[in-house]
Simulated assay, not measured.
Amino acid sequence: MADLSFYVSPLSEEIREEGRVQGRAEGRAENILIVLGARRLDVSHAAREKITACRDPELLRRWLLRSAVVATAEEIFDGDAPSEQ
Results as ranks from 00 to 15, higher is better:
E75F: 05
G37F: 08
A81H: 15
F77M: 15
E30L: 05
R28W: 00
R28M: 13
G27K: 10
E84T: 13
L60Y: 00
E14A: 15
E13K: 14
R55E: 09
G37A: 07
P10K: 09
L36M: 05
A73D: 05
E49V: 13
V69W: 01
E84W: 12
V43S: 01
A25K: 08
A53V: 06
R16Y: 02
A46K: 13
D80F: 15
D80G: 06
P57E: 13
R61N: 07
E49P: 00
R55Q: 12
D80C: 11
Q22I: 03
M1C: 11
S5Y: 01
D80K: 09
E58M: 12
V8F: 06
G79H: 07
V43W: 03
E18M: 13
L65W: 03
L41S: 05
I51F: 02
A25L: 02
L60S: 04
E30G: 00
P57A: 11
E30N: 09
E58F: 04
E14C: 09
R66P: 04
A29L: 02
A53E: 08
L59F: 02
E49G: 02
Q85F: 05
S44N: 02
R40I: 05
E26T: 04
E74I: 07
L60W: 01
G19I: 03
D3M: 07
V70P: 12
E14R: 13
A81S: 15
I76E: 02
A71N: 13
I32P: 01
R16W: 01
A71T: 06
L65C: 04
E75C: 13
A29Q: 04
L33T: 03
R48V: 06
E26N: 07
S44K: 07
A25T: 10
E17V: 03
E30A: 10
P82Y: 12
L36N: 06
E74S: 14
H45I: 07
R66N: 12
G79F: 09
E26V: 08
S9V: 10
C54T: 12
I15T: 12
L65S: 11
V21D: 09
A47C: 02
W63R: 03
D80T: 14
A47N: 10
L64C: 01
K50F: 00
E18H: 13
L41G: 06
S5K: 06
E18S: 14
T52G: 00
P10I: 00
E74G: 14
P10N: 07
V69P: 03
R28P: 00
E74N: 13
E14V: 08
H45A: 09
R55D: 02
E84A: 15
L4M: 10
Q22T: 11
L59H: 02
R39W: 04
L11D: 14
D78N: 14
V8I: 08
S44H: 01
L65F: 01
E74H: 11
E18C: 09
E75M: 11
L41M: 11
R40C: 04
I34Y: 03
L59N: 06
C54S: 14
L41C: 10
V70G: 14
A81K: 11
E58Q: 15
L11T: 13
E13I: 04
D3F: 04
G37D: 04
V69D: 05
D3G: 08
R66Y: 06
P57M: 10
A47H: 06
K50V: 13
D78L: 09
V8T: 15
L11I: 10
R61T: 14
I32Q: 02
D3E: 08
R20S: 09
E30Y: 01
H45F: 04
D42G: 08
M1A: 14
